[in-house]
Amino acid sequence: MFTSIKDFAAEWTNEAEMTQKIMNALTDESLGQAITDKHRTLGGLAWHLVESVHYMTSLGLAFDAPDNSDAVKKSAAALAGQYERVSRAILQAVETQWTDVKLLETQTIAGQEWNNGGSLRFTLMHQAHHRGQMTVLMRQAGLKLPDLYGPTYDSWVEQGMEPLA
């Protein structure tokens, strides 16, 4: 749970930058990659991250929704651009519309009481959860993974180092 707008802003900025790296590494050809036909595709996960940020408007934050057009959903560059826009928009909305006191207020979500700071934490962790799923699909699609919390296997090899397996 976040109890400070400043703390949320710092953590959201870092996490959104990592998600942006993932989005920027996608290609139009990779968007259809899936584990099975019963699971989301890589493009479906990317779109889910774009659209899910806007769910925070149900808690009283106001910012523009992403472009929901098919053209966006079929373009890696458009998905990356939409993610960049909504990730900045939620940060600006939190910084300008909420206060530290507002983070402690509770709201009922799916029959449970959540404070706003907890909802922000969930939103941030939701991004990390799906980012992890995306890296698996990216690897299957033959894409180079960006370094996130540390170097990837490929980064180690490129640097002439023995990867930790």
Score class of each variant (00 low, 15 high):
1 M>N: 05
6 K>W: 00
7 D>E: 13
7 D>P: 10
10 A>T: 09
13 T>Y: 12
15 E>C: 07
22 I>K: 01
23 M>P: 04
24 N>T: 01
26 L>T: 00
30 S>G: 08
31 L>A: 14
32 G>R: 06
33 Q>C: 03
34 A>I: 01
37 D>F: 01
43 G>N: 11
44 G>D: 10
46 A>Y: 08
46 A>E: 04
49 L>G: 02
53 V>R: 10
55 Y>V: 03
56 M>A: 14
57 T>Y: 01
57 T>A: 11
59 L>A: 15
59 L>I: 08
65 A>V: 02
66 P>W: 01
66 P>S: 03
69 S>P: 04
76 A>T: 01
78 A>C: 08
81 G>S: 12
88 R>I: 09
90 I>P: 00
94 V>C: 00
95 E>C: 07
96 T>N: 02
98 W>T: 00
99 T>R: 15
99 T>C: 14
100 D>Y: 04
100 D>Q: 11
100 D>R: 08
102 K>P: 06
105 E>Y: 02
111 G>L: 13
111 G>Y: 06
114 W>K: 15
115 N>M: 06
121 R>E: 06
121 R>S: 08
123 T>A: 11
128 A>S: 13
132 G>I: 04
135 T>C: 11
137 L>P: 05
139 R>D: 06
141 A>G: 12
145 L>Y: 01
145 L>A: 10
145 L>I: 09
146 P>R: 04
146 P>G: 08
148 L>D: 09
155 S>R: 01
158 E>M: 12
160 G>I: 05
163 P>A: 12
